[in-house]
Structure formats: C-alpha cells, structure tokens
Design a binder for these strands. Structure first.
Length: 266
DNA sequence: CCCATCGACCCATGAACACT
DNA sequence: AGTGTTCATGGGTCGATGGG
C-alpha cells in the first residue's frame, strides 16, 4: 500500500496465557476461537456480528468459543486475548461485564495506552500478572490446575510434532483414560480434544510473520495433514491460513521468556 | 504446489452406574 | 470423595479427489 517503507506499527506479544495483538483483522468470516477476545478500535469503530445481530463499538468483548465475526473501520485494530483455563470460572464473564459497563471508555484508553507502551518498549519478558496490570489495571485471578492436568497441558503445549493423545496423558497421570478425560474437563472447563485443537491452532501465531510452507508447518505443530490444518484454522480464526500469513508480513512478534522456555524444552 | 470439499471411519465425549 | 466401567453418539480425523 502507500504505507510501504514506513516502519510497521503492527505487533503481537504472545505469552502462554495472553496475547496482545495490534494489526490487521482481515475480513474474517465466522470464527470460534477458544479464547476470550477483547477488541479495541484504534480509530473509527469495530463491527461485531453474532447470530446475524450486528453491533458497533470502540470496545467489544467476546467469550471463549463464542461464534462471531469482527470487522474494523481502520486498518489497524487491537485484540487482547485471554486463555480461559488460566483463570477460575466466572472471572472472564465478570471482566466482560466490567469492560462493557460504564467504564468502557476508560478501559479502551487503558488498552490503547498499553499499545503505545508496547510500541516503544519491546517487552519480551512479561508475566501474566504484568500483562493484566498493563491492560486492565489489575492482575486477574489465576486458576490452580490439578498437577496431573498441568502436566498434560504442558505436554500439549510442547508441540514437538509427536501426537499427544488422551491415552498417553492418562498414562503419565497414572489414571485411566476415561478418568483422565473427566478430570481434564472438570479442571479446565473444556474437553481434552477441543483444548488440544485450540492450542494447536493458537500455536500458529508464533510463525505468522514467517514465509513458510504451510504443509510442513502443519506437520510441525502436530496436524496430521494440511487438509485438517486448513479446516481447523478457518474454524478458529475465520481466515484461511494463507490469508493470515499474507496479512502478517510486517508483524513484529514478541514472546514472553516463559513461552520461549516452553518451546525450548521440547 | 496450495487449498477446499466430501465421505467414511473411529475415537473422545458425556451420562449412568459401580467400586473403594 | 475419588476413581473406573460401559456404551451410544457426534464430531474430529484422515484419505481421496478436484480446482486454482
């Protein structure tokens, strides 16, 4: 575009439990991400559609696994995401209420300020508490998972390429497969299968600004084949994988050291 | 090469019940 | 309370095909 040559102000900070994204939204169709989204307009308005009902606002919150589509007037928009298993039941819903309430404009300004801060200081090292403080003015409550489930979560998030099945996780936890699956659902609030599928799709974000062969990438992050990869990405993000990569060319990606440590552990 | 569509298969899911 | 069965079912998984 006419912006060529200008230093891009598109950035993404990824931590295991949060993402701060400022960049293109594209023209996503219906998406059903596994995380809570807080969209904030940089200029103009955002436009949300849920079940054919349209709303427009400067700040929009969607809950985990809520099917929606989103569009922005201005080319750059902000999206802050929260992984639901990182916090106790009800915390996301309560936060959503507050963000939509009378202090909405305050929260929008707070998040815009966070964007300004991230543009100057390329934070790599940020904890979830610091992230929350920066975006919402307070650390959100944390969920303590059963250690057996934590181990399974860590295994899923290693993305070593080898398949992670309920059976292997159950064996590692010293439980039967069925008991393990129950425990996992109880603890995280989401089924093992759905959780794994979402984390897999989320892991794509780390590579969004690279020029990669999609079939190979699909393999590397644990998809059995590129067909399934494409299908799954579209369901979660509302965009074809190629569209995500094209739209992320100028995106600067930062990972928390915690994320890097997890990746290197594999 | 890259990606979408379509079936068929099979495994995770959730409910109901049993054991300790 | 926590853990393990069984079982019908739906949806995730995976290969084949075809178009761009």
């Amino acid at each position: 575009m006419e912006d060529k040559g200008r230093e891009s102000d598109h950035l993404m900070l990824i931590t295991p439990e949060r993402v701060f994204y400022a960049g293109l939204l594209g023209r996503p169709r219906k998406r059903t991400p596994g995380c809570c989204h807080i969209y904030v307009a940089v200029k103009g308005s955002l436009h949300l559609t849920i079940d054919d009902v349209h709303t427009s606002d400067e700040l929009i919150v969607t809950l985990p696994n809520q099917r929606h589509s989103i569009a922005s007037d201005y080319r750059t928009a902000i999206s802050v995401t929260l992984e639901p298993e990182s916090m106790p039941d009800g915390v996301i819903e309560a936060l959503a209420e507050r963000l939509r309430g009378p202090d909405k404009a305050l929260y929008a300004r707070k998040i815009l300020a966070a964007y300004a801060l991230l543009r100057q200081r390329r934070y790599g090292d940020i904890t979830t508490a610091e992230f929350d403080e920066m975006c919402f003015g307070e650390a959100l409550a944390r969920r303590e998972l059963d250690p057996r489930v934590t181990r399974a979560v860590a295994r899923i998030e290693r993305f070593s390429g080898e398949p992670v099945t309920a059976d292997t996780c159950a064996a590692e936890a010293g439980l039967s497969a069925s008991r393990f699956l129950h425990l996992f659902k109880e603890e995280t609030g989401i089924s093992f299968r759905s959780f794994r599928a979402w984390k897999r799709a989320r892991h794509l974000l780390h590579f969004a600004n690279q020029d990669l062969n999609l079939a190979h990438l699909a393999q590397d992050i644990g998809y059995p084949d590129s067909t399934h990869f494409s299908h799954s990405i579209r369901r979660f993000y509302g965009l074809k994988p190629r569209a995500i990569f094209v739209g992320s060319r100028d995106l600067a990606i930062y990972r928390s050291t915690e994320t890097v440590r997890l990746a290197e552990a594999s």
